[in-house]
């Protein structure tokens, strides 16, 4: 009897990917549609009115730039952590993964300051559609960051036991988490100019 599911750790000979990698790509395709829908809404709302505030005049561009740097750096460390596993250096994986998570938390802290500042000035989603779209898109992006932290923390702590039993599958998992993390980063790269600069 063959209860075993294939291509969990080794890639499929034709598609060239493992199940989890394909799954993550599909998930990301759907995420593109989600943020695509939100960006379309943003464009439609913005072009529908005459008085739309300019992002750089009302939002904190330096803080957002800092956050951009933080996220891009975290993407790099994410790649490093995966590459360390490929090189069979588990302790380096732990180091880079920890940095990735800390950077993600730093991103959220900066974001938190930015939000608090807005609330202090009584800028809420109900203030105007500019703030509404700002809070909704960055908020949803923030939830994605939190999701990434949870996944990465799992892989760093309890999930890393798999390194001993099935290193190949574990490396695949880290790679899949990395794909997701780069996507979260990429969304921010679109978000930053669309909301803060234009």
């Amino acid at each position: 009897m063959s209860a075993e599911i294939h291509y969990i750790s080794e890639p499929h000979p034709v598609s060239g990917v493992t199940n989890s990698k394909l799954g993550v790509w599909l998930f990301l395709a759907s995420e593109v549609m989600l943020f695509g829908g939100l960006f379309s809404a943003y464009i439609l709302l913005r072009t529908g009115v005459t008085d739309w505030p300019r992002g750089h005049e009302v939002l904190n561009v330096p803080l957002a730039t800092l956050n951009t740097v933080i996220l891009i750096t975290s993407s790099v460390t994410m790649v490093m952590s995966w590459a360390s596993l490929e090189l069979k250096k588990f302790s380096k994986f732990r180091l880079y993964m920890t940095i990735t998570i800390l950077l993600a938390i730093a991103f959220l802290v900066v974001k938190g300051f930015e939000y608090a500042h807005k609330f202090d000035h009584h800028h809420f989603p109900s203030t105007s559609n500019f703030y509404a779209i700002y809070f909704v898109i960055t908020g949803l992006h923030g939830l994605h960051v939190i999701g990434g932290i949870i996944v990465n923390a799992y892989l760093l702590l309890p999930g890393s036991k798999m390194w001993k039993t099935n290193p190949e599958q574990f490396t695949g998992r880290v790679e899949a988490a990395g794909l997701y993390w780069h996507f979260v980063d990429l969304v921010w790269i679109f978000l930053f100019p669309a909301l803060y600069l234009l």
Binding site: M33, L34, F35, G37, A41, P125, S126, Y131, A132, V136
Partner: peptide
């Protein structure tokens, strides 16, 4: 489905946060 999710989030925001998408 994701665009409906986007729309649902926007409508939730309109209902709960008082935005006016």
């Amino acid at each position: 489905f994701p665009p409906l999710m986007a729309a649902g989030v926007l409508q939730l925001s309109d209902r709960l946060l008082g935005s006016s998408f």
